[in-house]
Design a protein around this nucleic acid. Structure first.
Lengths: 201, 201
DNA sequence: GTCTATACGCGGATAGAC
DNA sequence: GTCTATCCGCGTATAGAC
């Protein structure tokens, strides 16, 4: 195989493994086994494990960075843009397990530098857009805090999905994207459009 | 030292390390070093690493299970009970880093059996209580889904706290428990009390 | 580019002395 | 209960042949 394809294959294998088990738990031998090369060959492409981890992250997040901006500008009214954001983010988390697991791992374990990189490259643009949309919808005095709440609810639903079957009253469809999109836009839509919601604190 | 104290010391050291770095990344040697005994001595108290991990988890979560039920029954009106839940859960997550990190790690990486255990011992009682409270406050036809949303928002805020300094519009106080308690009860209180909120889907 | 061979420390775990 | 001593496989990483 050509060098470019090997590199791609390694990054794909590595990010999948890191998402599934956490990168601490994944050895260079594990990655090599998936790609079907010998461990030593990895070192032709990447200086050391740290370099592979860093580039595997960048690889996954870069794929997501490209399409997101266009997707988020389609909305006409503020309310529609709000709903577009919720739908996009729920689908992203629930339908791309590699992205979502890596994201949560980074939020939990990422160093300050890595979190800064992540925020700047992946999060900040849609987050600003969401903040502006929320300001338009609700007139909140603290749109950024409310935007964090929206993102948080979606992120939290993703995390809770694993525990869902064991919670009393939990139904399987509460883990499906479309059900969640409808529920979250409904619930938060009401909160934001509430006539006397002015933000808080 | 007596066996009981050693055991306690080992469990405390282990759970702290697991919370900080993830249990895959923490060796028996690491645990032994903190307790200041030799690695081999750990095997007098615990059969193997898996047993230590399991008991370290149980140790941390058991500590939290005891007080929570009383705390959650103080509310008089449904609205007050809702606010009591939010305040309790936000403070638990933001003021006990060991508990919160272990919880998120388990939600992300826990096997189905461990998640079942976790749900039954830690989550299910307050969750049922919250579901009932929400049914009382809002008359929602799907109180469990709405309860998940409440828990999700709080969990998500905890996860986002690390990225907060890097988000545009993010202010440091958005990561403080009291500010969040106020914001979340305000935001979700409006959603739940909204006259025509009937749940969804 | 990928291989074989290899170095070497860290990992979990056990046996048996004290 | 805790120790010393030890086993052995896995981990990252390098040198050098093909």
């Amino acid at each position: 195989m050509s060098n470019v394809n090997s590199r791609e294959a390694i990054l794909t294998a590595a990010s999948t493994l890191y998402a599934t088990r956490g990168y601490e738990a994944v050895s260079m031998r594990d990655v090599a086994a998936v790609v079907q090369i010998k461990p030593a060959s990895l070192y032709y492409h990447f200086k050391d494990k740290e370099a592979l981890v860093r580039e595997a992250f960048a690889h996954v997040f870069a794929e997501k960075t490209a399409p997101m901006e266009e997707v988020l500008q389609v909305g006409r009214s503020a309310q529609e843009r709000f709903e577009a954001f919720v739908a996009w983010f729920v689908r992203l988390l629930f339908e791309d397990p590699i992205f979502s697991r890596l994201l949560v791992r980074e939020l939990l374990d990422g160093t300050s530098e890595r979190l800064e990189y992540l925020s700047e490259t992946v999060f900040d643009k849609p987050f600003s857009q969401l903040s502006r949309t929320i300001a338009d919808v609700s007139g909140s005095t603290e749109p950024a805090l409310t935007a964090m709440s929206v993102v948080s609810m979606i992120l939290g639903h993703y995390l809770l999905a694993g525990a869902l079957p064991h919670l009393s009253g939990g139904r399987a469809e509460y883990g499906e994207s479309e059900v969640l999109i409808h529920h979250i836009t409904e619930l938060l839509g009401r909160a934001l459009m509430s006539p006397d919601f002015r933000g808080e604190a």
